[in-house]
């Protein structure tokens, strides 16, 4: 039972997260759905866009998320944080009368990314550098992984004149799929009907990479340290 307790600040962050997602859903509802002709794609797009937004918001919140000393407790908290959005996703499916997708796949991707990020934060805080820089380094880490690799992908796209039909396109070199946003968007796009030319390879790579990363970050766990 102790395992299920969450710090008060974190509860506030979770509430903020759910609130922002609900507001985004309501805005989407009023902009695109009410008053327009019905198209099943609108709801599938809603799922896609709202999940991408949630991923970015999730990452932003994790920047200030306090990490716990116990690894398992960390995991449980991240899981609770991720799952708090399930009712909203189910609402999207129910409103649109579309068959319910496997929402657990993207949610687990978010969980792995979240645990990796928190472990990285913990590891960095254990390193011997001035504390001002610790948050900065975490931010650089996220920045490099998400934004810079996307820019590199764009440059590669222009340079090699790629013709891309879907996100999991076989012309994209496999290294780019370490970018969590790309893999995440790829999975979602595949679920709502886009093509998948690489099978489950990117997903496996994603999970294995982030599991290894978490493992590496947590090796030197035994030392007590300050946050």
């Amino acid at each position: 039972m102790e395992l299920l307790n969450i710090n008060r600040h974190k509860k506030g962050m979770i509430l903020f997260y759910v609130l922002m997602m609900s507001i985004m859903w309501i805005m989407y509802l009023f902009m695109n759905i009410i008053g327009n002709t019905y198209e099943i794609q609108i709801y599938e797009r809603a799922y896609l866009y709202l999940m991408i937004f949630s991923f970015l918001l999730y990452t932003g919140i994790l920047l200030v998320w306090e990490y716990e000393k116990d690894f398992i407790k960390n995991c449980v908290e991240i899981v609770i944080f991720t799952f708090s959005i399930i009712p909203i996703l189910l609402t999207i499916f129910m409103s649109g009368k579309i068959p319910i997708q496997n929402i657990f796949l993207p949610l687990f991707m978010e969980i792995f990314w979240g645990i990796g990020l928190i472990s990285t934060k913990k590891k960095i805080s254990q390193m011997k550098i001035p504390s001002v820089w610790k948050n900065f380094i975490v931010m650089i880490f996220i920045f490099m992984f998400i934004i810079v690799s996307s820019i590199l992908l764009y440059c590669y796209y222009e340079y090699a004149s790629l013709v891309l039909t879907t996100v999991y396109d076989k012309d994209i070199p496999i290294y780019f799929f370490l970018n969590p946003v790309l893999s995440f968007i790829g999975t979602l796009y595949m679920q709502v009907g886009g093509g998948n030319q690489m099978g489950a390879k990117p997903i496996y790579i994603y999970f294995i990479f982030w599991a290894l990363w978490t493992f590496v970050m947590n090796i030197s766990n035994s030392q007590e340290c300050s946050q």
Binding site: L4, N5, I14, F83, P87, L90, T91, M94
Partner: peptide, 16 residues
């Protein structure tokens, strides 16, 4: 303190 967590899981199951 655990009621918060239970709420999240409860609502998820309810909507499901």
């Amino acid at each position: 303190k655990w009621i918060f967590t239970i709420t999240i899981f409860g609502f998820s199951i309810l909507f499901y």
